[in-house]
């Protein structure tokens, strides 16, 4: 196993760059960051729409939620791969298709987390803000979201881990990420598929496990901070956030 790592580590790390597109772990991380980064603002809007008292916003937002959570990501990727070039009338790079699909997919799951964060806040927070005369957007931007998002940070890190795992699906449309790189190595070595894929598994494990642990530390830190009250009264509702969950 060590020889394989020794020989192909560069391929695993950055793909065939500079002789080809950026690949390997670098591409995986890049895709994940773009995916979560762009999904985040969308997810906030989606969550707010799902919680809106206006049916015109709530119904479509809820429909999107049920629809995108029912279909497998790989099917969405294939669908996008075939359909998007037709819509745009020109060929689209696999990387771009993958990135866009990830953004759409992850924003629905992130919206669940954001929504849970908002709903876990005590009603009194919104009421106190309203009682002072703050309008909806002021309340949401300055009082609700800062608290909700901080509380859900561990879960969001968990969703980032999920995104990293989801990038492996880029393989099916030829995106040069880590799994694709591993398959290239496998084709080169041929005789040791078990070792190659074990290395692949360990690579993902190291990255994802480190992030998962970071999320857990973050959660413990938040829990300590929130429970550090002097009052005898249950200030309650800074609920401890749900554990970061990788799918």
């Amino acid at each position: 196993m060590l020889d394989i790592i020794h020989q192909y580590w560069l391929l695993f790390l950055i793909g065939s760059y500079p002789n080809g597109p950026l690949g390997g772990i670098a591409a995986t991380v890049l895709l994940s960051v773009i995916g979560i980064g762009l999904a985040f603002p969308l997810s906030v809007l989606l969550a707010l729409a799902q919680l809106s008292p206006y049916k015109a916003l709530r119904y479509p937002a809820t429909a999107i939620r049920y629809l995108l959570r029912s279909i497998p990501l790989v099917m969405l990727i294939f669908g996008a791969y075939f359909i998007v070039p037709i819509i745009l009338g020109r060929p689209v790079a696999g990387f771009t298709t993958m990135a866009v699909t990830l953004v759409i997919f992850q924003s629905v799951y992130l919206a669940e987390i954001v929504r849970a964060g908002i709903e876990s806040l005590p009603k009194g927070q919104a009421e106190a803000a309203a009682a002072l005369g703050m309008g909806y957007w002021t309340r949401t931007r300055k009082i609700i979201l800062p608290q909700a998002l901080t509380n859900m940070l561990p879960s969001m890190v968990g969703q980032f881990v999920t995104t990293i795992k989801d990038t492996s699906l880029g393989y099916v449309i030829g995106v040069n990420e880590l799994t694709y790189a591993a398959n290239q190595v496998n084709s080169a070595v041929i005789t040791q598929p078990f070792t190659v894929f074990l290395v692949l598994s360990l690579a993902y494990f190291v990255i994802c496990f480190a992030l998962t642990q970071a999320a857990r530390l973050l959660e413990a830190h938040l829990e300590r901070r929130n429970s550090r009250t002097v009052t005898h009264v249950t200030l309650n509702a800074q609920n401890a956030p749900a554990a970061g969950h990788s799918s």
Binding site: P122, G124, Q125, E127, A128, A129, Q147, T150, N226, V233
Partner: peptide
């Protein structure tokens, strides 16, 4: 309010 509802952040 009865529960004060100060903004903890």
């Amino acid at each position: 309010f009865q529960q004060f509802n100060l903004f903890p952040h």
